[in-house]
Structure formats: C-alpha cells, structure tokens
C-alpha cells in the first residue's frame, strides 16, 4: 500500500476505522461459531486444512473433530453487510487514491449500516462488565474462551490482572431464514435500470 507519510496520522485514523469494522465482523463470525466448537477446545479459528491438528505430541495425539463451517451463514452476513453498509464496495476499493474527506463520507455509510446490521441480527454484550484498565480477579474454573490470559501467566487461580479488553459476547443471533435453492453466493445482484 502506498501511504503518504506526510498525511500519516489522519490516514491511520481512517484505516483504523476500516480495521475496526473488520475486527467486529470477524469477531462476530468467530463467536457465532463458538458454541459448536466448545467440546473440542481447540483454537477458535476454523482450520480448514486437514493436517494441522495438535502439534508436537508427546503421547499419541487424538485426531480432533473439526467442524466444517457452512459458507451459507457467512455469505448471508456478507450480503446483509453489503446491503445495509456497502461493506464489500468499501473494502474492494483502493483507498490510496482518495482524500480523507471522500473516505470519511463513505465510512459513515459503512459505519451506520454495519451498526444497524449488527444490532438487528445480533445481541452483543460485553463478556466482562468491569471498566477496562481496572483490576479484576478470576476465580478457579473461569471459562478460558471467555477470558484469555496474557502476559505473565504463572501460578494458580485465582488470577488477578488488568482488564485490557472487556470482550464481546453474542447472546442472541437471529439471522434471516433463506429459501431453499436461493443462491447465497450472489452477495449483491447486478442492477440494471430500464
């Protein structure tokens, strides 16, 4: 990417916005898939390749049961984001050639629409309700998916540390139903005005 260093600070703001939207999308996708995977307790990223099961096994490693994510739900979400937020249009364009004002105007469309989509189809709540940057204590038996320990991870629970990110949890998903035979891979129809 060709970034003009002189305009770096503001450009970075715009990019952050894009990144933020992306982070939310992926987070939602990841969290949405979570419940079905809890039993296997592997990393939450859906691993499509057949080999990369648990590495460096000392005992005989058990092959993990990996679930194939159906693309329909993901495509549906993309469709909704494109519809309400012009998400794909936004990401597919090369931002380098446009002024911040242009990008800013478009980013509003994306932000407003994405927000609407998220609030319509998902109920989001923070995982932890404490203030970020405050000290919290985790008792034994906490859910390692809900709370991820980082940094100086030693000793036994209860752990006390700083809440860096409060986390997000989808408490309810109500995606639209899709008619049998509907082609979900068309995330935006071409439009022809007569």
């Amino acid at each position: 990417m060709n970034i003009d260093l002189a305009s770096l600070p503001t450009t970075i703001d715009m990019l952050h916005l894009i990144l933020a939207v992306l982070v939310i999308i992926f987070l939602v996708l990841v969290i949405k898939r979570k419940p079905t995977e809890q039993a296997t307790s592997v990393e939450p990223i859906a691993e499509q390749k057949p080999e990369p099961a648990p590495t460096t096994a000392k005992e005989t490693p058990k092959p993990a049961q990996l679930k194939e994510a159906t693309p329909d739900a993901a495509l549906q979400l993309l469709t909704l984001l494109q519809q309400d937020a012009r998400f794909i249009d936004f990401i597919q364009e090369d931002v380098a050639n446009y002024s911040d004002a242009d990008i800013g105007a478009a980013a509003r469309v994306v932000h407003e629409g994405s927000k609407k989509t998220l609030s319509t189809y998902f109920e989001l709540t923070p995982v932890r309700n404490e203030d970020e940057e405050s000290r919290i204590t985790l008792n034994e038996g906490f859910d390692a998916t809900e709370v991820r320990l980082t940094g100086n991870v030693v000793g036994e629970a209860p752990f006390t540390g700083t809440l860096v990110h409060k986390g997000w949890k989808v408490t309810n998903t109500k995606l639209p139903k899709i008619a049998e035979g509907h082609n979900t891979s068309i995330v935006a129809s071409a439009e022809v005005e007569l």
Partner: peptide, 12 residues
C-alpha cells in the same frame, strides 16, 4: 450527516 452513496460499486 446525510450521506447518499453512489448507486454503483464505486463508493468513493
């Protein structure tokens, strides 16, 4: 702000 994006795929 009231923003009306273009109809085409070019958003900017």
């Amino acid at each position: 702000p009231i923003v009306v994006p273009s109809r085409g795929s070019k958003l900017f």
